[in-house]
């Protein structure tokens, strides 16, 4: 039981962080604060994903010299030597001497972070335009302005209709 808690406490802490950032995104009426909450949520998801790829006793997935056998050392020393080494039993699947963490989550999250900031700035650009049009970036104020405008338009239409019939 104790072991189970120790091995899973990391996940629970990250889930807690995720929920806090989800709460920020949900509860904030201010659009910028909401976007900050979303970007925190994304960062935390990346944390979770990368943590899943960690291997106990492993190191960063940059190969150490022990795992780079000779056939690569002939780089630049001439293709002939390299071809000879490959022909002499070069094996595609190497047995690793050292333990490395899983590189796949790193790749996926690396690109996700860069795309995240790009989409964040699209959201911010939309917020800047909202501010220019509505004069506020509070979601409920924007909604109130929308309702007011709709009501005014309706009243105007009705009065025009009355004038036309009269």
């Amino acid at each position: 039981m104790w072991t189970f808690i120790l091995t899973h406490a990391g996940y629970w802490a990250i889930i807690g962080l995720m929920m806090i950032s989800l709460y920020i995104a949900f509860s904030a009426e201010n659009l910028i604060k909401r976007l900050v909450g979303l970007s925190l949520f994304q960062t935390t998801i990346c944390l979770f994903y990368v943590t899943l790829g960690k291997i106990t006793g492993g190191t960063a997935p940059v190969l150490l010299p022990a795992d780079m056998p000779e056939h690569g050392a002939a780089h630049g020393a001439g293709a002939a030597a390299e071809a000879h080494l490959v022909a002499g039993g070069g094996e595609r699947v190497a047995e690793l001497v050292n333990v490395y963490s899983n590189p796949l989550p790193h790749v996926l999250m690396l690109t996700a972070i860069v795309v995240g900031v790009a989409t964040l700035s699209v959201g911010l650009a939309l917020i800047v335009r909202i501010r220019e049009v509505y004069g506020t970036i509070e979601a409920d104020d924007v909604r109130a302005v929308d309702i007011e405008t709709a009501l005014a338009q309706e009243a105007k239409l009705e009065s025009e209709l009355k004038e036309a019939t009269a």
């Binding site: 056939h71 690569g72 780089h75 293709a79 390299e82 071809a83 490959v86 070069g90 595609r92």
Partner: peptide
């Protein structure tokens, strides 16, 4: 395939 190399050449 860029330089038409066999596998193992980089």
């Amino acid at each position: 395939a860029l330089f038409g190399e066999p596998p193992g050449e980089h």
